[in-house]
Design a protein around this nucleic acid. Sequence first.
DNA 1: TTTTTAGTCTACAGATTTAATAGATTAATG
DNA 2: CATTAATCTATTAAATCTGTAGACTAAAAA
Lengths: 153, 153
Amino acid sequence: MISKKTKYGLKALIYLARQYEQGPILIADLARDENIPKKFLESILLALKNSGILQSRKGKGGGYYLGRSPRQITMGQAIRVMEGPLAPVQCVSETAYAKCTECGNENTCGIRLVMKDVRDAIAKIVDHTTLADVLERIAQAELTEKNVVDFCI
Amino acid sequence: MISKKTKYGLKALIYLARQYEQGPILIADLARDENIPKKFLESILLALKNSGILQSRKGKGGGYYLGRSPRQITMGQAIRVMEGPLAPVQCVSETAYAKCTECGNENTCGIRLVMKDVRDAIAKIVDHTTLADVLERIAQAELTEKNVVDFCI
DNA sequence: TTTTTAGTCTACAGATTTAATAGATTAATG
DNA sequence: CATTAATCTATTAAATCTGTAGACTAAAAA
């Protein structure tokens, strides 16, 4: 299960992607609109900024905005910032490899063999899904739902 | 990242699968051979027993053993017992669905749409990988490694 | 240049989860 | 009835998660 921190962060990114190139957005507005504790959100956005995904400006007219286009930001990049590596075990992580302390022979560890497949399957999805893709899927889902509602009426 | 508890549990299951139908195995032996804290292992095995994956016998000649054949125990079943649901967000869990508190409209939530795909990808792997499959892959990996060693000499 | 605005940094604190340990109890065998 | 080995209850230390408070810094406007 992903943490609230990650959920909040992804929500914020989707929110910012929706208003891409419309100038900086205030933390306070984002927190209010998405129902996220403001101080908590601050630290999340800061982490996203330090990783290069977001940029910010201080003072009047300031706020947060995407550091590059929604097409160039993947869910995988964002998730790694907030949740850490995708891999279920560190010995199969591509971005944060480390030997498992419990593990004897890495080449013949059954758990590792399976978890390598799991990691790759997760990465295949989140590293190929951009914020732009997410916006499109949301729009599609909203259309579908609208039709369902119309159908009901 | 999966917890130590889950790693220990999976190690124990693979260990027991290797000796399937050779009678009950002592917690103490398992703990020693796999380098798992004995008391911690006790509680893990008990949970696996309560879920039906393992069976046990008390007293002399007792111990733990697989409740069914290694072909009929999947990694997914075991992981769910120790780690909980596979789904990255509870609103896409097949075995433990619950509405996300942060979520407004579930049908049009972008995070949900992506995480549903992730859950399905994970489930596709772990629900179709049995303990028998893992044993086979280990055997295969050991063969490969042996050849590599031979080649070096 | 002072004031206002809004992000940044430091520190902390409560709640929950993780990873264990200790000891008493129960059930099965011989 | 003694021995064996799983089971149950309780506790604990450490880590992580979630959230809060307040001082600090940079930028813009008055």
